[in-house]
Design a protein around this nucleic acid. Sequence first.
DNA 1: ACAGGCTAGAATTCCGATAATATGATGTTT
DNA 2: AAACATCATATTATCGGAATTCTAGCCTGT
Lengths: 224, 224
Amino acid sequence: MLKSEKEAAETIGETVFRRIRQDIISGALPPGSKIRLEQTKERYSVSVSTLREILSRLTTENLVIAEGQRGFEVSPASRQELLELADLRILLESHAIGLSFATGDLDWEARIVAAHHKLSAIERQLLEGDASRTVDWVRYDWEFHQALVSACNSETLMATLSSVFDRFLRYHLLAESFRGKPVVDDHRRLFELAMKRDVGGARDILTRHVRNGTEHVLTSGRIR
Amino acid sequence: MLKSEKEAAETIGETVFRRIRQDIISGALPPGSKIRLEQTKERYSVSVSTLREILSRLTTENLVIAEGQRGFEVSPASRQELLELADLRILLESHAIGLSFATGDLDWEARIVAAHHKLSAIERQLLEGDASRTVDWVRYDWEFHQALVSACNSETLMATLSSVFDRFLRYHLLAESFRGKPVVDDHRRLFELAMKRDVGGARDILTRHVRNGTEHVLTSGRIR
DNA sequence: ACAGGCTAGAATTCCGATAATATGATGTTT
DNA sequence: AAACATCATATTATCGGAATTCTAGCCTGT
């Protein structure tokens, strides 16, 4: 988890991988759209081989679909998948919260305090109408939720949750609207409950948080 | 040449992907071992590009690790990961059992009956000492557990569970020994509880089932 | 020993070629 | 007009090889 010194060995594939993944999650590459290799390799300035490598990777976490001899396409968005992801996120994150709250030490608390501080600062700006910070908000939101579970002591759980979270996030970014004050309140409550190590309470808030978010995305009407 | 139709839709990459994945799970490619591209591409008769594509895919589910400019290696096995996988399997499969038991119809019951029939037939042979069937047992075991959750109605959950299951299975195959009668009894109980739609009971058995399996692997002494 | 540099081997990336397949247009039959 | 066959074009899947960069083992001189 310490990634200090030897970060220099970044390969092109790795970099572009993150870029494409980001573009899918953010909606820059819209759901269901065909990914033509010649065209896309220009866009990201990589060769076909490297591009295929990247797209292949993304198929494993279902952000991209590879069909027989028909190439790749961005995984389509469906109401059904959104509901499944919401369910899974609640399951995984609730579990992780239980583990994390039980063993978190002072460093863990500090991470949460810090993450919530940044998050709520951005949220204040958002509520005041400064929409330019939504990109930051997305990152800080994830970092806050990650901080909450960061003491769960299971790489595997964190990785799985992370993938589910990102795929869930894609639907929110497709809906293109910040849910507003209820979200901010949820985060504050989660923060307080974490400090009190109230697992049950946190789980309840989280569950509502995710379900309301899902509802919000669905009623925004951009998902079929 | 004539094209054999059913098989034509499969790409080489797909085929070899499954083969390599299988070889990792079965231990033919041992944990922690370096994967030299030139050498490995011979072994599976594919080009470097295709091989890299495949290995990249496997990194996403943590069966292979790609390190900076240092190539690929089979993900090492650790006591810690085994415990994490066990935990995650219990979490996911218990949840899926809840969903599945609630909505399973007659077809679902039939799938379980069929799967358990096959599984127990193999297990009888195994108990009588016919070790030649372990490969089949592994498949039928998974098919039985899959049948149990097959009515959970969540592709995402099934896919996640499937990956966790396989990675968990790798540890069992490394331990190289069938646990014997307790496993058979667990399966019979799970079968009966499924027919009775007893979610709580099934979850209890499953939890014990997985924990005992983990214990068995750990005491077999092949994992550091 | 050991620091530094050299070198053989690997990995990464790109490119061009080829065969197989899909797509779309065109024309023909019913 | 709908269904079907045929063919040209576009795209994919795969391969082998070349250029570049990085790694790791080895050598050498101190």
